[in-house]
């Protein structure tokens, strides 16, 4: 494991894989925007100006203004922060939860039966409905949104990890580790978990994208982030009402969302290749 993401290997990979390099640059840009949102935004995101409302893109307002005359660019910039935090938070929480459940149920047959019936039950409900239901019984807040998305999304991750673990559990090198006196926890962490990293890296990108979308839906329904906190979700939701006449309110945040999701996917694919030790970047 220690060698997998060495700096030189990463550099080599980036030099050979243009898409990954571009994706990584865009992703870093988004993270920087999220961190320095307050400095980058040209206007305070909630400053209403009824004279300038519903304007198209101009030099003063690159992304135009919304129905309250708020600068859409400033709101998108500040919204980046919410989306990135929810996206990262939900991805980490989903992968952690899913991996723990998947490892345990893939390795211990007795636990598998119990855990998988619970997972089956959760998977019978569409993830977004489950998240809505969970948010309906809790207070709108960043933390609760992350928890709701993690609970709704982790069954799929658990299934993925379980299937990988079940296929490697019978491998001879796992038998060899058992004969070497290695305990269950160490076998899971050292011999079974690393085999899931490649798939998890790719899975993580889907979770990230879906987390941002679920957050948008939750915010649209008034169940996600409080309306005072701009997020791409509630910007798009608000702009939807004016879409036919003033498409810029939806278009700009939607394009930005797509660019972010695409860049994460490019990084995820490259990560998958990098984590496979048989792929060499000469």
């Amino acid at each position: 494991m220690n060698s997998m993401l060495s700096l030189t290997q990463t550099q080599r990979m980036l030099r050979h894989n243009r898409a990954a390099a571009i994706g990584l640059v865009i992703l870093i840009l988004f993270v920087l925007v999220a961190i320095f949102a307050d400095l980058i935004a040209p206007y305070p995101p909630s400053a209403a100006n009824s004279i300038d409302r519903l304007q198209g893109p101009s030099t003063a307002h690159w992304f135009g203004t919304d129905q309250h005359g708020r600068d859409v660019l400033s709101r998108v910039v500040v919204g980046t922060r919410s989306s990135i935090i929810v996206g990262f938070g939900a991805t980490v929480a989903t992968l952690l939860l899913g991996t723990v459940i998947g490892l345990l149920s893939g390795y211990f047959r007795v636990l598998d039966w119990v855990l998988m019936r619970i997972i089956d039950g959760l998977m019978a409900i569409p993830a977004i409905l489950l998240a809505i239901a969970l948010m309906a019984i809790s207070r709108p807040s960043l933390f609760n949104v992350i928890v709701a998305i993690a609970i709704a999304d982790s069954p799929r991750t658990a299934r993925l990890v379980r299937s990988i673990v079940m296929s490697t559990r019978g491998a001879l090198h796992v038998d060899a580790a058992r004969l070497a006196g290695i305990g269950h926890v160490k076998i899971m962490l050292k011999h079974l978990l690393p085999g899931t990293f490649g798939a998890l890296a790719v899975k993580g990108t889907y979770v990230f994208a879906s987390a941002i979308i679920v957050e948008a839906v939750l915010s649209f329904l008034g169940l996600g982030l409080p309306p005072t906190v701009p997020s791409w979700g509630n910007i798009i939701a608000e702009g939807r009402l004016y879409f036919q006449i003033y498409p810029h309110m939806v278009l700009f945040p939607a394009v930005i969302l797509s660019v972010l999701v695409l860049s994460i996917n490019m990084v995820g694919d490259a990560l998958r290749d990098l984590l496979d030790p048989r792929m060499k970047w000469e």
Binding site: M1, S3, H173, A176, A177, L179, A180, G181, I182
Partner: peptide, 29 residues
């Protein structure tokens, strides 16, 4: 009681350096 396996490729974890595989019983016991 130890074992030598038929397939020397499948019996070594592809992600571990070979010395780490050899050291496993030393750590395990």
């Amino acid at each position: 009681i130890q074992m030598i396996f038929q397939d020397p490729y499948a019996s070594l974890n592809p992600r571990l350096r070979v010395w780490e595989s050899v050291a496993e019983p030393i750590f395990g016991f």
